[in-house]
Simulated scan of single mutants.
Amino acid sequence: MSPITNLAREGLNRRQAVALGLGGIAAAMAPLNARATPESARKLLSDMVKTEPKAGKVQIKTQEIAENGNTVPVTITVDSPMTDKDYVKAIHVVADRNPLPGVASFSLNPASGKAEVQFRMRMAETQNIIAVAEMSDGSAWTATREVKVTIGGCGG
């Protein structure tokens, strides 16, 4: 006997079972509440990068105010010659108000030619984007950029 037949015998008809299933799918697809905090973002970065990052060398280019947080373009550039002896090994990006703090990690090497990455991210509310570049000499550099997300034309 199928589970649906079993449910019908116990008082739940097929239409109710389908509605219940669709409700479960809708609940699973609902956006997560923001869980990341500035502390969880810093903890994630310290777990990924063992060296204390210093300010400088990293630039975050993005909108100051995002009218649509569904697709915010971000460019991260690191001042590096990208030679065999001096290059960016990785760029890690976190956000302190997203459902999860980790946004992206990029691996680079001298063959990358340029220490720059571009991507789009979804932002539900105003928050900081933090980027850390790990260098081949073991040093780490960082930058932070606040992006204000408007909701219906008002700052969020």
Rank of each mutant, 00 (worst) to 15 (best):
A55N: 11
Q16D: 14
I151V: 13
D47K: 14
V74Y: 03
S112G: 13
A133S: 09
M82Y: 08
Q59L: 09
V72M: 03
G24I: 10
D96K: 02
M48H: 09
A34F: 04
R42M: 05
P38I: 05
N98S: 15
T71D: 13
P53T: 05
T62W: 03
T144G: 05
E10R: 15
A34L: 08
M1H: 11
I25H: 00
P3N: 12
A95T: 01
F119W: 10
K89S: 12
T83D: 14
M121D: 07
P81T: 09
A133Q: 06
E125N: 09
P81S: 08
P99S: 08
V88G: 01
I65D: 10
G138K: 11
E10W: 11
P73F: 09
K61F: 09
V149C: 04
R15A: 15
P99H: 08
K89I: 01
A55G: 11
P53N: 08
V147N: 01
E67L: 14
T51S: 14
D137K: 08
A66W: 11
V18K: 04
V49G: 06
K57P: 02
T62A: 12
N98G: 10
A55C: 00
L44Q: 09
G24F: 11
R42T: 09
G56K: 07
M29D: 10
P53S: 06
E52W: 04
L22N: 06
K148N: 11
N6I: 08
S80F: 04
S139I: 05
N68G: 02
A34E: 12
G69D: 03
V93N: 02
G21K: 01
P99L: 05
G152R: 02
A140K: 00
R42E: 15
N6C: 06
Q127W: 02
P101T: 09
A17F: 13
N128P: 00
K148E: 13
G23F: 05
M29Y: 13
N6A: 12
V132D: 01
K61Q: 11
Q127M: 11
M1K: 03
V147L: 07
M82V: 07
A36N: 02
A34S: 15
L100G: 09
P110D: 00
I76P: 01
C154E: 15
G56P: 03
V49A: 03
R42W: 00
L32Y: 12
D79R: 06
D79A: 13
A26S: 14
L45W: 04
M135G: 08
K61I: 12
E134I: 07
K85E: 12
G102D: 06
F106L: 04
P73C: 07
Q59R: 13
A30M: 15
Q16R: 10
K50M: 08
I130A: 03
L20H: 10
Q59I: 08
K61V: 11
G102F: 13
A115Y: 05
S112P: 06
A133N: 04
V58F: 02
P38W: 02
G155L: 15
L7F: 10
L45I: 15
T126K: 05
